[in-house]
Design a protein around this nucleic acid. Structure first.
Length: 872
RNA sequence: GGGUGCUUAGCUCAGCGGUAGAGCACCUCCCUUACAAGGAGGUGGUCACAGGUUCGAUCCCUGUAGCACCCA
């Protein structure tokens, strides 16, 4: 149609009618990496902007939550790179001690029928490394597929030599500072994983258990206690009551016998016993319950372990060798036979701790383990937020942060595993203990502690160990502290707090200036997605079906700070449609001869002024929203600018201009080129693939090695209120005419003779021919007989000759509705303005607004009434 | 049991002192040479419930109900 279209006959082949993401994405990603687009330079003068990835489990797979996290990080980093920062998205994985060891042990058992003990420690760890390589390949290829623009040269793994050295250095420093100690405490023990767990690795869930009341002692000297873990009675070393509880005052100082053991235990008074709960008397098992342990400490009670590491009863007696749950029933039966069971409540719902990794019921157990003293560390982490050194977004999440940080207990860091950083403590033949730093060797004849450290000990160092700490590296100098940590709010405790504790301790500064907490992804029913419930959507499936851009746009578009979002595969389709729309819009622009060559024209048409104003407003708004991590709103602003302003209005408005040709058409081609150039830049951080493909075509810089990844981020040029007002009036007029045609069942394409009045009043004096062309209005020639009069606004009206009768009922129905709305509006305004209290107390601005509303309503009523009269 | 948050159009969510917004869905029309993965037009809500504060409450306060999550 246009000259330009003829100039580019190959466009159809260059840009097919439908966007096909799969081919484009693989090619683009490979090229970006080959061209070093994501590499960050330690030596550059540019302002640093670094985000370290929250390292996923190396043996895991990316789920939608990761995809969301990575999309948001990648969007931030890509935008900052375009803004001229030395931008870095640092990738890596963690070794996920327990879960990785579990995975490999299971594989070993299934495939070779071997346990890790059959292999021995060294061989087993070698096996795990082999597995790690396989899984690592999988997870990194997933990251590439969703478009993570990471600097692969800086990829780290928590068990790398460098990071291992960081862990050892940190351990030694803290050990020497007295921040790490070994002690006998009640810890969470998983009898299946056969290791200690930290508090956050235990998940509490309501289980249907039983509450059994049993009687200790006989007659006057008897006392009834209730328990959900009857088997622990074998380890009871006291019965405790509240000191003020008169019911039991006479028993204090006496002893009762523990059945089956012959052991006599005292009745003690302890203020921590709740007299309201149950009978007010509790059994005390110091070796298997944290509260009981505390009571035991206060009263100098013996602690008796009654189970082994697998949860099998070891106490001598008839129950020896039974599993803890078998023992529970067996003991109940035996006590029942002795007439000691006073009451049984079943089911009794109560929270039971489960191993986060294998779901086994956790057994509290007295055990000698290594701990980190957290008081001081937690305080500095809290102080970093209190002082504003680290800001949390959204601020409401601070509460969650503080409630955790201010109530932290010492952290059990030793794990009875083989996969991980081995504790650098060596024991001498005479009970000596030395902590060995990197490069040091333990004295002859010493043996190393067999345990390894909690994975989070190494992950906590991530924001600086990945930059080479403890070496004084240029990378550390350049990028620490990092710009922001981005993660889900459920990870505050795992990630944020631990990194902040270690960062403030080792570096003297918090590891990030900001923390942005996004929500979790849930399924249609609001359930958290998880492997076990099988409701997860595989992000890679979304990528295969709709493309990575669609996946990313879907996720970013729903990302309101701190709020969870619902995902379903259908939502990805909508995002895919948007990408396709962008593809076709740009394709049309190119076919129309859009160009980015030369300066922008200075003598602009109204619609060009308008679109540039909209562009500017969009840039301003998007910038402000990104600064606040308001991804959903930023995406909304971009979506509306693209779809409404550019595609639905601007491109349509330019069609007659281009068709008319001449200088105006040339100038408009330049403006179209500019608008698309800027739009593609604005969308690039979130949908990098399709925008790069289109932008390179638009700019024709592919051959010259150009890339949108390093193109400058747009800046706002200022808005044009006059043009915005005039085009808004134009849009209103056009919509009214279309609406009329639709209501009247008249084809939009059928020309109607019309008379337009009042255009000058809204700045559209020169645009009448243009408007007539747009909505197919023919001149009001000889014999013009208007059958309808559309009052578009106070100023503008359109008289139409439909050459015949019109559907009066349809028009009347519409006008009645408009009249009713206006009357309701007027009524409300009049009522307010008649209220003296309102006039006296409301701010002037509000009163003026209501007055204006009243005037508008009155004008609307007059106009609509007049139209109704004319209809009659 | 303690705590936090949520309840706004059919669905997913914004708004948060001046009488309601978006996307999708839905209804009508249209295969108009950028796009049917599309276009044009349109319908739709006593803002969970009950009190209170205020000239005015979806928005603030109290209580109730339901849901979610965290901690014991």
């Amino acid at each position: 149609m246009t000259d330009a279209a003829q100039q580019t006959p190959d466009l159809e082949t260059q840009l097919p009618k439908t966007y096909a993401p799969v081919e484009v994405e693989a090619r683009r990603y490979a090229k970006w990496v080959a061209d070093g687009r994501f590499k960050a330079d330690d030596d550059s003068d540019r302002e640093p902007y670094a985000i370290v990835i929250p390292p996923p489990n190396v043996t895991g797979q990316l789920h939608l939550g990761h995809a969301l996290d990575h999309t948001l990080i990648d969007t931030l980093v890509r935008r900052e790179r375009m803004r001229g920062k030395e931008a870095l998205f640092l990738p890596g994985t963690d070794h996920a001690g327990i879960s990785t060891q579990n995975v490999v042990e299971r594989q070993l058992a299934d495939k070779e029928g071997l346990s890790r003990h059959d292999l021995g420690r060294e061989a087993f760890v070698g096996k795990v490394w082999e597995w790690k390589d396989v899984y690592h390949e999988r997870i990194t290829s997933q990251m590439k597929k969703i478009g993570d623009g990471v600097d692969w040269d800086r990829e780290r793994f928590t068990l790398d030599d460098g990071l291992s050295s960081a862990v050892q250095t940190m351990f030694k420093r803290m050990y020497d500072d007295g921040m790490i100690y070994r002690a006998e405490r009640i810890i969470n023990w998983c009898p299946r994983c056969m290791t200690a767990l930290s508090d956050i690795e235990v998940e509490h869930q309501d289980d249907a258990g039983e509450l059994v009341s049993m009687r200790y002692g006989e007659g006057e000297a008897s006392i009834v206690v209730a328990t959900t873990r009857l088997e622990t009675m074998l380890g009871d070393t006291a019965v405790a009551v509240h000191p003020d509880d008169e019911r039991y005052a006479h028993l204090l100082g006496t002893t009762v016998e523990v059945p089956f053991t012959g052991r006599r235990i005292p009745v003690v008074a302890d203020a921590h016993v709740d007299p309201e709960f149950g009978t007010g008397a509790v059994k005390v098992t110091p070796a298997h319950d944290p509260n009981d342990f505390a009571i035991g400490q206060r009263h100098g009670l013996e602690s008796i372990l009654i189970m082994d590491e697998r949860g099998v009863i070891t106490a001598h007696g008839p129950f020896e060798g039974l599993d803890r749950f078998e023992a529970r029933s067996a003991i109940a039966a035996a006590l029942r036979a002795e007439g000691r069971i006073v009451a049984e409540q079943r089911p009794y719902m109560h929270a039971v701790g489960h191993c986060e990794r294998c779901d086994t019921t956790v057994e509290p157990r007295l055990s000698k383990q290594w701990f980190v003293k957290v008081e001081r560390l937690a305080k500095s982490a809290g102080d970093a937020v209190r002082s504003g050194e680290t800001r949390i977004h959204p601020p409401e999440m601070e509460k969650r942060f503080f409630s955790w940080v201010d109530n932290l207990l010492d952290w059990c860091i030793s794990r009875q595993l083989w996969w991980g950083h081995r504790i650098p403590i060596w024991y001498g033949p005479n009970g000596e203990e030395v902590c060995v730093g990197p490069g040091e060797t333990a004295p002859e004849g010493y043996v190393q502690d067999p345990d390894v450290l909690d994975t989070w000990f190494s992950s906590g160092l991530w924001p600086f160990s990945t930059f080479g700490w403890p070496e004084d590296t240029k990378a550390l100098e350049k990028f620490y502290p990092t710009a922001v940590l981005v993660t889900g709010w459920d990870i505050i405790f795992f990630w944020v707090v631990r990194m902040m504790m270690f960062g403030t301790y080792a570096m003297g500064r918090a590891p990030f200036g900001e923390v942005f907490l996004h929500g979790l992804i849930r399924d249609k029913h609001g359930k958290k997605m998880s492997k076990s419930s099988g409701n997860g959507i595989d992000p890679l499936e979304v990528v295969d079906r709709y493309g990575a851009d669609a996946l990313r746009f879907m996720l970013a578009r729903d990302a309101n700070p701190g709020a969870d979002s619902i995902a379903s595969i259908e939502l990805a389709e909508l995002s895919r449609n948007f990408c396709n729309k962008l593809w076709n819009g740009t394709r049309f622009a190119l076919m129309s001869g859009a160009t980015v060559e030369g300066d922008l024209p200075t003598d602009l048409s109204l619609i060009d002024r308008w679109v540039l104003s909209r562009l500017s407003a969009t840039i301003t708004s998007v910038d402000a929203l990104f600064e606040q991590y308001e991804f959903a709103k930023a995406m909304d602003a971009l979506y509306h600018f693209a779809k409404d302003d550019v595609f639905d209005w601007y491109l349509e408005l330019t069609k007659p201009v281009l068709a008319a040709g001449g200088q105006r058409a040339e100038d408009t081609r330049r403006v179209i080129g500019h608008v698309f150039d800027q739009l593609l830049r604005l969308l690039h951080p979130v949908i990098p693939f399709v925008t790069e493909e289109l932008w390179l075509t638009l700019n024709g810089t592919e051959a010259a090695g150009g890339s949108l990844t390093v193109a400058a981020w747009p800046t706002a040029a200022g808005t044009d209120a006059e043009a915005e007002r005039a085009v808004a009036a134009l849009q209103h007029l056009v919509t009214e005419v279309r609406r009329f045609r639709s209501d009247q069942d008249l084809k939009q394409s059928l020309p109607l003779p019309a008379r337009l009045t009042g255009l000058a009043a809204v700045g559209l004096a020169d645009e009448e021919p243009f408007i007539r062309g747009l909505v197919k209005l023919a001149p009001a020639g000889e014999g013009f007989a208007p059958t309808a009069d559309l009052a578009v606004s106070d100023e503008v009206s359109v008289a139409l000759d439909t050459s015949g009768s019109i559907d009066v009922d349809a028009e009347r129905a519409r006008l009645d509705k408009a009249l009713k709305a206006a009357e309701k509006e007027l009524e409300g305004a009049v009522k307010k303005l008649g209220n003296e209290a309102f006039l006296a107390k409301a701010p002037d601005a509000v009163v003026d607004k209501i007055k204006a509303r009243k005037a508008t309503a009155e004008a609307d009523i007059a106009r609509v009434t007049a139209q109704l009269d004319r209809l009659a």
